[in-house]
Write a protein that binds this DNA or RNA. Structure first.
Lengths: 202, 202
DNA sequence: TGATAAACGGTCCATTCCATATGGTACCCT
DNA sequence: AGGGTACCATATGGAATGGACCGTTTATCA
């Protein structure tokens, strides 16, 4: 019970989804993830097929399988699994964040290029993240308007908004990051007022 | 020449370090990385031993080996390798960022816990990132004072400062992120004008 | 001085991850 | 019924991961 052989982030992802959405097939998990966390933390679908059986072996979930047709396997969280989630939520994650950003890597080596290289890289990354941020925010606002008309929408909508907010917040941080880089690098003819609203068009 | 079978971020990391620091052993690469990018992008050392030979096979580096003692292998970038780096620096990285943050994952499932769970998680993450930020900034300032006394210090110091700035900027973004989360979740006195951010509690 | 420990430098291995290919199932349309 | 296209799932080969392990050099101290 206490000596679970160390659960991975993937384990908790699956357990969490099973806890929140109820019994699910791996395919359902895959779609959930793709629509939410998948935007910035890629969980390959093969993983989401491989993880639930592991959880079953640990007694944290159970499995039922269709006997005809697609023989879909549906996984259900057990009390032990739910307990593991609760325990995890109470235990602060000291494992440090992995930020694998190709743009950051380029910036790190920007001094190997020409004098304009840093500015070019920064401008590019800024454009990319602003575009993504805009996309999130637009989707969020359309979401809101839908909700406005429909009164009490199901939990689905609710967590959808939840996940969108995560993406939004992350992209907002990224934009802030690159803007800071831009201002630090705006040596020569630096920005006069505020160039924050440069058109995003490539 | 153009049809290199797709170089990975790891490839460019190694090429970039070879370009900047000159001929290096895998161990030297490992130490460089650990002191800089490794803070937020873990490259396991085994990778840094495996990658250079691959680059040799592609003609982007050459290898020499000590014949006695530890039989260290030293790798040197070739003109083709240097060209690949330059080309890469000019090509914007559209591959999206991977942000693998256990804290973020917990936050995503915070509604499965008790009412205080979100606040606890946010407070924890904020503390963690603030501590790291402080550490970076302190090291940066001690760095500066050393440089102040020594006049023209070598390039080593320069890129060291460079890398520190990266860590610093990243942590600053993280702190901003979690502060934003904190302010959004400071419900009890909920946001007056804007209810978009309904409390996460189930 | 010699013995021992500690740090250095590197390799190897079991496991997991990951992307892609591929195979089966259900539904839709005519 | 036939065939096209989503949908759903697994298989597979290569890479990444992280730790154990091993030889070399330097430090410590009796």
């Amino acid at each position: 019970m206490l000596s679970t052989p160390r659960l991975s982030p993937t384990s908790y992802l699956v357990l969490g989804l099973l806890a929140r959405d109820g019994p699910s097939t791996p395919y359902a998990l895959k779609r959930q993830v793709a629509a939410t966390l998948g935007h910035f933390w890629s969980f390959p679908h093969a993983l989401l097929y491989a993880e639930p059986p592991r959880l079953v072996k640990l007694g944290l979930a159970t499995e039922t399988q269709e006997l005809q047709g697609r023989r879909r396997r549906t996984f259900t969280i057990t009390p032990a699994g739910a307990g593991a989630v609760q325990q995890w939520l109470r235990r602060p994650s000291h494992d440090s964040t992995e930020l694998r950003d190709p743009g950051l890597l380029q910036l790190y080596f920007a001094d190997l290029g020409s004098a304009e290289t840093p500015r070019i890289i920064i401008r590019e990354q800024l454009a990319i993240h602003r575009a993504k941020l805009k996309e999130y925010e637009e989707r969020a606002s359309s979401q809101r308007s839908v909700r406005g008309t429909a009164g009490a929408v199901g939990q689905l909508e609710e967590w959808h908004g939840h996940s969108l907010r995560m993406g939004t917040l992350y992209e907002r941080a990224a934009v802030a990051f690159w803007e800071e880089m831009a201002s630090e690098t705006a040596d020569d003819g630096a920005a006069p007022g505020d160039r924050r609203d440069e058109p995003l068009i490539a």
